[in-house]
Amino acid sequence: MEVRVANVRKEFDRFPALRDVSLDIKSGELIALLGPSGSGKTTLLRLIAGLERPTRGNIFFGEEDASHKSIQERNVGFVFQHYALFRHMTVADNIGFGLKVRHGPTRPSAQEIRRRASELLDLVQLSGLEKRYPAQLSGGQRQRVALARAMAIEPRVLLLDEPFGALDAQVRRELRRWLRDIHDTTGHTTVFVTHDQEEALELADRVVVMSQGRIEQVGTADDIYDTPNSPFVYGFIGESSSVPVKVEDGQVWIADRPIGLSAPQAPEGQATLFFRPHDVELVDGCSGCIAGTVAASRRVAGTRRVELEIGGERQRVEIELPVDHPAAQKSRVAFRPRRWKLFPAA
């Protein structure tokens, strides 16, 4: 099922949680809504589900305008952050709940419901736990039951709110791969919310980066990481360093020195230079480079992170060097970013 969010605005008590958001979700796609807290990602998910109504704008399921349909009518599977399993029901009853509450001929027989429940338990690899209560399950198991319950109603779209948020790192990683497998098997159009970029980039076909109620960028993991389209995305996804610069004569300058990067397309004037700390080349001498004195040096896993003080204003910038690189010992280091991007100063 394709889902189209068109110019949606959502206010809570006059405070805009989403400002004019549009998004096309393709059928069968696994898509992540990624952003810091307060970016509006959960609000967008709840709007798609029908748990909230948009203040303005529309939400389409396929060709049908679902904006004013209730959550029941939309037939979506929603997995809540804290699972919201019914604690007084067994695992099997939890999964069968969506079928049990159906009316008339669409309601399967009790036997059929039981069969479907254990089928889904097989799918989420929890066979044999039918009779357990949620309190008797681990966090990861509850998460799987919640997903099985959401899938039992054969939803048109599967929506997951911080699906792994409450789990520890090890279980998270396992469940991530498992969710990808389930998605590939069932082919549900799936939207999940996360604040964990690693999760989003690894798991999703496309990532929607959000900030302050707006969509900043939509793209594959490669798009988002390699060609961030805004200072926010550059800063939010992966490591990044930034330096204030100015553009003059198609060249990038720090203070009164050109740094050997030409930017013929960039508008003249103040700008900010962004680059990845690991994506730099060290140069000897300095005619056209960024040079600075080593202010601090830290060992981080397989690399060494060096903070340089550059220019007259003691601007600090971070680069990454191999652990055994001799430059890390020197007091003065010169480098040039390999891949970089300029954003005009705001």
């Binding site: 589900a49 748990l51 037939n75 809540f80 919201a84 399993l85 019914f86 709940f97 509450v101 959401a150």
Partner: peptide
Amino acid sequence: GDEEAALSLGANGWQTFWYV
């Protein structure tokens, strides 16, 4: 949370109250 979950699974208001 539980009520929202029940609604999302298609239960109406009365069923949500009664079962959840």
